[in-house]
């Protein structure tokens, strides 16, 4: 038997494909968020326009830890997503890889402390909050947000946290569970820890 902590090819593919899917969803959302962005620009709050969708940014990492549940799954998932984003022609190029590392670390940290055993909503929400904070620190350094007034940053932080909680803390577990119930994530760590019954007539759950 293989080491359970080793990534199988299908794990890599699952995360990579999810990263592509949500990369496109994120683009779609920012496209729609463009209006919000435009409206906020004259008010000087343009960057706030991106914040409601910020959570989609780390969805690959969140899915990674939640579905695979092995050490490094969050960071590696985010790295995969970042490289893919690079390939898809993001205008930030390899800088995305830096943010990927930060996001992956953020999402995985608390789960690491809980030894990859506790995946309750509480933990996932906490992970999303930590991840938002990490990315904000990253923005402070890299994007120069340290030059911006604190109240504005606080507002952005709040929106970002809410977005992360919705997308990563709640949506990811809910979607994963739905997938498990549809019998699709057989053989992944999520399924093993969930009791799904199946009989001749299909899944009774």
């Amino acid at each position: 038997m293989q080491n359970v902590n080793e990534w199988k090819l299908k794990d890599v593919l699952l995360i990579a494909i999810l990263a592509v899917l949500f990369g496109v969803v994120y683009l779609g959302c920012t496209y729609m968020g463009g209006i919000l962005y435009g409206a906020l620009t004259p008010l000087g709050m343009a960057s706030l326009g991106y914040e409601p969708f910020y959570g989609i940014y780390f969805i690959a990492g969140a899915f990674g830890v939640f579905i695979l549940r092995k050490p490094g799954s969050g960071i590696i998932a985010e790295l995969l997503a970042a490289i893919l984003e690079c390939l898809m022609g993001n205008y930030f190029g390899p800088i995305i890889i830096l943010s990927g590392i930060v996001q992956g670390l953020g999402i995985e940290l608390i789960i690491m402390f809980r030894r990859y055993k506790d995946f309750s909503y509480g933990t996932m929400i906490l992970a999303s909050v930590i991840c938002s904070v990490f990315t904000m620190i990253y923005n402070l350094v890299i994007s120069g947000y340290n030059q911006i007034a604190v109240p504005v940053l606080a507002l952005m932080m709040v929106v970002r946290i809410v977005s992360a909680i919705i997308f990563d803390g709640l949506l990811v577990p809910v979607l994963s569970m739905k997938l498990v119930k549809a019998g699709l994530l057989k053989g992944y760590a999520v399924s093993e820890e969930m009791q799904v019954e199946i009989d001749d007539m299909g899944i009774v759950s």
């Binding site: 620009t41 000087g44 709050m45 343009a46 030059q147 911006i148 007034a149 604190v150 109240p151």
Partner: peptide
């Protein structure tokens, strides 16, 4: 541009 306007209005120590 967005960042510019933001900095213009809300720079720290403004």
């Amino acid at each position: 541009l967005g960042l510019f306007v933001m900095g213009l209005y809300y720079a720290k120590g403004s």
